[in-house]
């Protein structure tokens, strides 16, 4: 059997559309997910509370069930109950909740490594609780766990291939679409897999670029 990649050329438009969707979806759920994670980690690192327990439940349920089941539940389960959300929004929600749960745990480990004395020092300098939290706890914790966070975001991007199953026009949807038209599944999947690989490498570089700038102040002390 001869592989023929030229049959993909007429479908370049679909590939581009899928690529853009995957990138945009990943970008916004990364931002939202990291925001959610900061919030959850903030609540859970404080005194034990009902809210903290509930957020703990959310983290455990998300981490211990498959992404595809969460997606089906949000898309079909909730809409059957009358909470109708679009496929794109369900995908965004599932990705955000996932990244949020995993990053919250990573972040919590980073926060727990914070020197409590520094926090007290910051309060003594007259910073508010939120201010000192931001400067003494959150930002250094982010810097400490930045590599782990980078990997987690890439895992969520790669996992997003599953959103094709609820009709979101992402890169995998494009691959399946082309496969159903030209019946050249193997070629399509190989090429799309390569695109995902490049996307993962690109994300790692982009995170590295942002990290070097955002946490520049730590470089001198650490290296």
């Amino acid at each position: 059997m001869e592989l023929d990649f030229s049959t993909l050329v007429p479908y370049a438009g679909e590939l581009v559309q899928g690529f853009v969707t995957t990138v945009v979806l990943t970008a916004i759920s990364t931002l939202a997910g990291l925001g959610l994670a900061s919030l959850v980690a903030y609540v859970r690192s404080g005194k034990a509370s009902l809210l903290g327990r509930m957020l703990g439940g959310y983290v455990e349920v998300t981490r211990n069930t498959p992404f595809i089941v969460q997606l089906f539940f949000l898309f079909f389960g909730l809409s059957a109950l009358g909470f109708k959300i679009s496929a794109l929004f369900a995908a965004f929600l599932a990705m955000t909740l996932n990244l949020g749960a995993y990053s919250a745990e990573i972040l919590r480990a980073g926060i727990e490594a914070t020197d409590r004395g520094q926090l007290e020092a910051a309060r003594a300098l007259g910073m508010s609780r939120l201010q000192s939290y931001r400067h003494v706890v959150l930002i250094p914790a982010f810097a400490r766990i930045y590599p782990a966070l980078t990997s987690q975001c890439i895992i969520v991007m790669l996992g997003s291939a599953v959103v094709s199953q609820i009709s979101v026009f992402d890169l995998t949807y494009a691959a399946n679409f082309i496969q159903s038209r030209n019946f050249r599944g193997f070629e399509v999947y190989l090429v799309v897999t390569l695109i995902y690989l490049l996307l993962a490498v690109g994300m790692r570089q982009a995170f590295g670029f942002v990290g070097r700038r955002a946490f520049a102040f730590r470089q001198g002390g650490n290296a």
Binding site: L194, L197, L198, V201, G202, R204, Q205
Partner: peptide
């Protein structure tokens, strides 16, 4: 990481 760069990833791929 070997596949750190686009060139490396593209070449391996």
């Amino acid at each position: 990481r070997i596949l750190k760069t686009f060139k490396g990833a593209l070449a391996s791929g």
